[in-house]
Simulated scan of single mutants.
Amino acid sequence: MAGDRPKRVTIYSIARECGVSASTVSRAFTRPEIVNDDVREKIHAVARRLGYQPNKAARGLATGRAGMIGLLVPDITNPFFPPLVRSIQQAASVADWSVLLVDADEVAAEETELVEQVRSQVDGLIVASPRSTDADLETTLGDIPTVVINRVVPGRPSVVCDNTTALTAAGQHLRELGHRRFALLKGPEASWAARQRSEAIRQWAADAEVDLVESGDFAASYDGGREASRAFLDSDATAAFAFDDLMACGVLAGLVEAGSSVPDDRSLVGCDDVLLARTVTPSLTTVTAPVGALGAAAIDLLREAIGGEPARELRLDGTLTLRASTGTVPVGAVRA
Score class of each variant (00 low, 15 high):
Val251Pro: 09
Ser235His: 11
Asp136Arg: 14
Leu255Ala: 13
Ala22Lys: 11
Thr279Lys: 06
Ala200Lys: 00
Phe29Ser: 08
Gly124Pro: 12
Asp245Gln: 03
Leu246Ser: 05
Ala333Phe: 11
Ala305Phe: 14
Leu137Pro: 01
Gly225Asp: 12
Ala219Ser: 12
Pro290Met: 01
Ile76Asp: 00
Val85Asn: 02
Gly250Lys: 14
Phe182Gly: 03
Leu50Thr: 06
Gly155Arg: 06
Arg59Thr: 12
Phe243Arg: 04
Ile11Phe: 01
Ala297Gln: 10
His179Thr: 09
Thr326Arg: 01
Ala95Leu: 02
Ala206Trp: 00
Phe232Ile: 10
Ala104Met: 03
Pro290Gly: 03
Gly64Asp: 07
Ala200Ile: 01
Leu246Asn: 07
Val334Gly: 01
Asp134Trp: 04
Val274Asn: 04
Ala128Arg: 02
Ile69Thr: 10
Ala183Gln: 10
Thr319Pro: 00
Pro74Trp: 07
Val9Met: 05
Leu314Ile: 15
Thr326Lys: 01
Arg131Phe: 14
Cys249Gln: 14
Ser325His: 09
Leu301Ser: 05
Asp105Thr: 01
Gly19Pro: 02
Asp207Cys: 03
Arg195Lys: 11
Val331His: 09
Thr279Ala: 08
Ala289Asp: 07
Thr133Ser: 15
Val118Met: 13
Ala228Glu: 08
Pro79Asn: 00
Glu313Thr: 15
Asp317Trp: 00
Val39Ala: 14
Arg65Ala: 14
Gly332Asn: 03
Val160His: 02
Gln89Tyr: 01
Thr139Glu: 05
Asn55Ile: 12
Ile11Thr: 12
Val291Pro: 04
Leu276Tyr: 07
Gly64Lys: 07
Asp162His: 00
Arg230Glu: 15
Ala237Gln: 09
Cys249Ile: 15
Asn36Lys: 13
Arg323Gln: 03
Ala194Lys: 02
Ala22Tyr: 02
Ile69Pro: 05
Val160Thr: 14
Arg278Met: 04
Ser229Pro: 13
Leu72Ala: 01
Ile34Ser: 13
Ala228Met: 12
Arg323Asp: 03
Leu137Ser: 01
Ala62Gly: 04
Asp272Pro: 00
Leu268Arg: 08
Leu50Lys: 15
Cys249Gly: 06
Arg31Asp: 15
Glu111Ser: 01
Leu276Phe: 09
Val35Asn: 09
Arg315Tyr: 07
Gly64Ala: 10
Arg40Met: 12
Phe243Trp: 08
Trp192Glu: 03
Val46Met: 07
Ile88Lys: 09
Val99Met: 06
Pro154Asn: 02
Leu233Gly: 06
Val122Glu: 04
Leu61Trp: 11
Ala231Gln: 10
Ala248Lys: 13
Ile69His: 07
Arg40Asn: 15
Glu313Ala: 11
Ala66Gly: 05
Arg197Ser: 05
Val94Ser: 06
Leu174Phe: 09
Pro188Glu: 15
Ala135Lys: 10
Leu50Val: 06
Ala28Phe: 12
Leu212Gln: 02
Val159Leu: 06
Ala92Asn: 06
Thr281Cys: 12
Gly171Leu: 06
Trp97Glu: 08
Val46Asn: 03
Val94Glu: 11
Asp143His: 08
Ser235Met: 09
Asp265Ile: 08
Asn36Ala: 14
Val153Met: 10
Ala293Asp: 14
